[in-house]
């Protein structure tokens, strides 16, 4: 009886401690995306560099590709940028930029300054496409498969760790 009176509060404490410990390791900004395993929403936008040319996700059918949401005003985009440049040099997969709520000249200047890893950037000046993709924290990156289905979403800057552990293996699997 005495032992039980001691064991029950201890068990409750341990259970709570485990819940809190797990909770601490999770990032509250990473909201599970409702887009995973759903078709990438369709859109048609002007390209950043050539306003006369359009881009639609359907153009990428048959390819595994990345859609990276970026902006010249976005500080953390600079953090992930070198990784994207490196990836584009290795020609892993086409990376399409979604220039989100930016000024055209600022976006172009930013790419000139830091390097352009994108095969092209779509120009989402009013952020409507961003809303359709559930973007809430730039940068965000979507991995889209050959059928145009979103398979993964990275919220916030791509890290070397996320690249090695998740994104690159997924690309390899989807490209096979």
């Amino acid at each position: 009886m005495k032992a039980l009176g001691f064991a029950i509060p201890l068990a409750i404490f341990v259970a709570l401690a485990i819940f809190f410990a797990v909770g601490l390791t999770r990032d509250p900004r990473e909201v599970p995306s409702p887009f995973i395993d759903k078709p990438a929403p369709s859109f048609k936008l002007e390209q950043l560099h050539e306003a006369s040319r359009a881009f639609a996700p359907e153009d990428m059918k048959g390819k595994v590709w990345l859609l990276n949401v970026w902006a010249s005003w976005c500080v953390s985009c600079r953090v992930e940028h070198p990784l994207l440049v490196e990836m584009s040099k290795k020609n892993v997969v086409p990376i399409v930029g979604l220039n989100y709520k930016d000024r055209r000249e600022d976006g172009v200047a930013w790419l000139t300054k830091f390097g352009n890893p994108y095969s092209l950037s779509a120009y989402d000046v009013d952020g409507r496409v961003g809303i359709d993709y559930g973007v809430y924290g730039v940068p965000e990156t979507f991995v889209i498969d050959k059928m145009g289905v979103i398979r993964y979403k990275q919220i916030g800057p791509i890290t070397q760790e996320a690249l090695d552990a998740t994104i690159l293996p997924l690309i390899k699997k989807l490209s096979a």
Partner: peptide
């Protein structure tokens, strides 16, 4: 909020 912060500095 980094998003807000970065926008506020530009616009």
């Amino acid at each position: 909020c980094p998003l807000w912060f970065s926008v506020s500095s530009v616009f």
